[in-house]
Nucleic acid binder design. Structure first.
Lengths: 235, 235
DNA sequence: TAGTGGTCTAGACCACGCC
DNA sequence: GCGTGGTCTAGACCACTAG
């Protein structure tokens, strides 16, 4: 029943990373350091570090140590992708509506659990642009059940997920998506500055988080005329 | 330089699974069995089994053993999805063109390596139907570099990937995708029995395999009117 | 050469599933 | 009660990185 030792070590280290006590490119204490610090054997220290590596917080380097890395955003989730990452440096985000309480919304293919429905729903909308061209309209919903005082109107570095990690110590641990090609309706066409009835991607996503009962529900409408949506996965 | 012991054990076990010597739902030898069989300690046996589990070949069950599982096809790759898996039982596949040698094709966003280009290209096309409705047109290409005598015209259980695994002991270990929404051209519209200019999903995929230099390149055209394309991922 | 992570041995105790 | 996998100890040797 009690948490295994290596889980405690892992939780400690992860929290220190989330708080910024170890920053990207810095090295964590070595396995032997951890053995001394926690009075454990290398097997236990290694187990903690190996799992942190599997979770994407660190990279292990033979002969050097365990380096903290910027947690890759693409955990099997979809990313906008242009030629040679031009997108990454040139993305602007417009807030269409700030995070605020709304009635729970039913129009989502993923079932929202009773637990989630029992607390109010926070919603926000954004428009992602490359240069001056809008390419993605994004809507997000999540329950306040695990995160009762979400009063942020601005995000750390503009990133909702980074805010969840650094302020609330909540991580994305999985996702589930449904993708369709549809015709843009007039409102979407106007937002994305395209012709009505143009083909666009319609994507529903459920992001699972490290809080068992907290999911982030998103709906994306993408103009893929110039930029496609990409996805990578490795065993 | 030499392969670690646990890798050898792992390779042996995986091969036995691929050959069908251990079938889905059967249990592998226990950790202690492996210790005796290979003259190793439990640490080494565990390492082999844990990695096989991570690779998706087995499930570990406390108090019971390591059960062989049908390797989930959804390794971060896209799957057709209808309401409540109605699709799974009702999918028919039409072969539009059998596997045969063709000149290498350049019209793919993923760069084909020099190594791959140095050997001839095999191509085949299929049409996936749910009931009598065609929903996906699939084109595939791969190099004969690692698989010089691919003469199969039919696949085991109709599955290309199952054939790769069981006959050639090659597994899918990752994938990379690009997704767009486009208008169906007349040829595609005819194949999928939809109106020309209907919005359809256009997906390019590179499947990475356990053979370092072998990739499977696919192009999918999907009518998502009634069925969407889905995707799941867990850490 | 000193320190790091990677592999491996030989034990121990525990929690879980099943008969 | 017995066998299974899960956790943990206390060592050893090796391969890699860097000063």
């Amino acid at each position: 029943m009690a948490k295994p030792l290596y889980e405690l070590i892992k939780d400690n280290l992860r929290l220190q990373i989330q708080k910024g006590e170890y920053k990207p490119d810095e090295y964590l204490p070595s396995e032997n350091d951890l053995c001394r610090e926690y009075n454990i054997t290398r097997t236990t220290a290694r187990k903690a570090l190996e799992e942190l590596s599997k979770e994407g917080f660190i990279e292990r380097h033979h002969g050097k140590g365990s380096k903290v890395v910027e947690r890759r955003a693409s955990l099997g989730l979809l990313n906008l992708k242009g030629f040679s990452d031009v997108v990454g440096n040139n993305v602007k985000t417009l807030i269409l509506s700030e995070p605020s309480l709304v009635p729970w919304f039913e129009n989502h293919p993923f079932r929202v659990s009773e637990k989630e429905l029992s607390s109010p729903c926070i919603h926000f909308e954004r428009l992602r642009c490359v240069g001056d061209s809008p390419v993605m309209h994004e809507k997000n919903w999540f329950s306040t059940i695990e995160i009762s005082e979400f009063y942020d109107k601005e995000f750390i570095d503009g990133s909702f997920f980074k805010t969840l990690s650094q302020k609330y110590h909540i991580e994305i641990v999985g996702s589930e998506q449904e993708i369709k090609a549809v015709r843009a309706n007039s409102k979407t066409a106007e937002l994305l500055q395209i012709e009505p009835d143009s083909p666009i991607l319609h994507i529903f996503i459920r992001f699972m988080t490290s809080k068992k009962h907290l999911n982030i529900y998103s709906e994306l409408l993408c103009n893929t005329e110039n930029y496609s949506v990409g996805n990578k996965y490795f065993v």
